[in-house]
Design a protein around this nucleic acid. Sequence first.
DNA 1: GGGGTCTTAAACAGAT
DNA 2: TATCTGTTTAAGACCC
Length: 714
Amino acid sequence: MMQEAGTAETTSNGTAKQNGVAVEGGLRDIRSKSATPSSDITAANLMTLQQQQALQVARQLLLKQQQQQQQQQQQSGAIKSTKSSEKQPALQVPVSVAMMTPQVITPQQMQQILQQQVLSPQQLQILLQQQQALMLQQQLQDFYKKQQEQLHLQLLQQHHGSKQQSKEVSTQQLAFQQQLLQVQQLQQQHLLSLQRQGLLSIQANHNLPLHSLAQGVIPAELQQLWKEVTGTHVKEENSGSNNGHRGLDLSSASPVPPKSILLNQHATSNGQYGSHALKRESSALDEHTHHSHPLYAHGVCKWPGCEAVFEDFQSFLKHLNNEHALDDRSTAQCRVQMQVVQQLELQLAKDKERLQAMMTHLHVKSTEPKPTPQPLNLVSNATLSKTAPGASPPLSLPQTPTTPTTPLTPLSHHPTVITPTSLHSVGPIRRRYSDKYSMPISPDIGQNKEFYMNTDVRPPFTYASLIRQAILESPERQLTLNEIYNWFTRMFAYFRRNAATWKNAVRHNLSLHKCFVRVENVKGAVWTVDELEFQKRRPQKISGSPALVKNIQTSLGYGPVLPATFQASMAENSIPLYTTASIGSPTLNSLANAIREEMNGAMDHGNSNGSDSSPGRSPLSAMHHISVKEEPLDPEEHEGPLSLVTANHSPDFDHHRDYEDDHGNEDMLPDQARNFYLHPVKEPFGTGGLLLHIAWPGGIETRVDTCRESSTLI
DNA sequence: GGGGTCTTAAACAGAT
DNA sequence: TATCTGTTTAAGACCC
């Protein structure tokens, strides 16, 4: 145990820390080490180009602002203090210029200038794109117009009121500072309020799949951005630029995102935020009185990147006021946090919309009255008759394969009604393994690879299945123990922590299951999968008992939803049980999905009999509309691009369903098909493919090579 | 309630 | 000696 703990420290890439920064940093490290290329490279490059363009625009605006500011200085005769300007770092000049120039600038320009101060071009590019989506820019413009007019008036008054330039400059600066401070304080109040909301939001959604942000600014990038920002200011502090009075330090006046923008940012995703801002302020004060603070938990300061430990709440408050006071550093941190929250909210809004559409879609489907709920030639009409008409098997967890915000894996038992609650069972909560039995592990991993890689969610597979998958994915179908470890950590964020636990479990499973064979190799001992042994367990117990079915499903990876009738059908048809081995191969293609779909169709029947032995379904089936229809199938009834009537030649298995490839593949199988039978003839350890012979009416056969993802007429 | 499966924890031994 | 690897046992949870 102690040894394993040590292993955890050395093999988890330092991700044992639960704070976001550490975790994300670890993820990034792992990603960079992973040989798997990112699928977002093209999109990322495109985004980078767009961001660079935006950056150029921002820089041009900065130059214009500088030029205009210089011209205005000459015209007004105002003497700027060269001393003060020289003091400011080059990067801060645009900010000061932007704030001090009594010229009206657009909110976009303002924001660009503001952010130019503390963020790198890449960071700025990201932020710029997000800022451009804001809607209350006109209000901001008006706000700043007024502020700048006041500043300008004050400047002129002070300018004419004094004849001594040095004194004039100092007076101007003081006025500027006062005005800026006033504006900043107003903005900061809103900023902190919103930032606090953002923190609460993040804490409340601690298990939010971070991968969901892959489409936008991924957390890792934000964390990196955050680190850079923090690092920048740490350097500034170390260089002594901070005078110790951060709250009043205007030497490097860093503007705060305008409050109107801040409000808008939340209003875009939640219209209640703005209206409740004051309430939250007051509630926050109440919380303070009870020694509860959103930025304080378990004696640790929750300010991003801080994590300072305090013995009591008062110390924390003191720390908060001193270390996180109103200054450019804090505002920059707030901006970053704001972006994080905004991204989360945007992503959440997208996913909510998607979820709503999916639920609506599935609700319509599930409530559609089936013309005839029972297919022909069903083996178990008695069991099927238990299914009420129209009570098609509910789809447990609908998700789109393109955005694995949550895994495409049904983690809960079939809910009668799909509710958001039923969909929120994602998380490290240990699920009963009957769920896992139903997982076709390879397709699921394929569909949810990004999700599992980036989200600390326990994969719904058994250790044995995962080990087998790891070994089968290897080129030589053999891995050392350490390589298996690496596969686990590479493929699943969940296994990047608690290494002592799961590594022990891996070793335990390797030793326990006969299907894992240890082979002495040149480079040491490697583990292989004895597929026959892996499959043998199933026929050994084939006796029609539930245990048999469960074992079959476990071995197949299709779970207990696979009805015994279909197993019997497979046995009769001499369909090798290693069919799924090819499915588990990297060459999985859409036709393998067809096989799964076929099985899922059978599963549907199994589910419809009300048996408790069907708690889960393939995640793919969850994405497809599957329904039982009476033959002949009316093409008009089909909503999907592909209408396939299948009638297994087995007398024990005959069902009809709609089929729609999850990739929209319409030409996979002709809809005139009346009979087809899976005839896998390949060996699973060969090319990893699967040959299927599909017999069509009229003696036409289609041979499908899953390796080549092609089909040819014979 | 019993059997089976799976996870987790732990102890132990041999190899490196 | 420390760590890794592999085996084994036990307990508990869950499902049928």
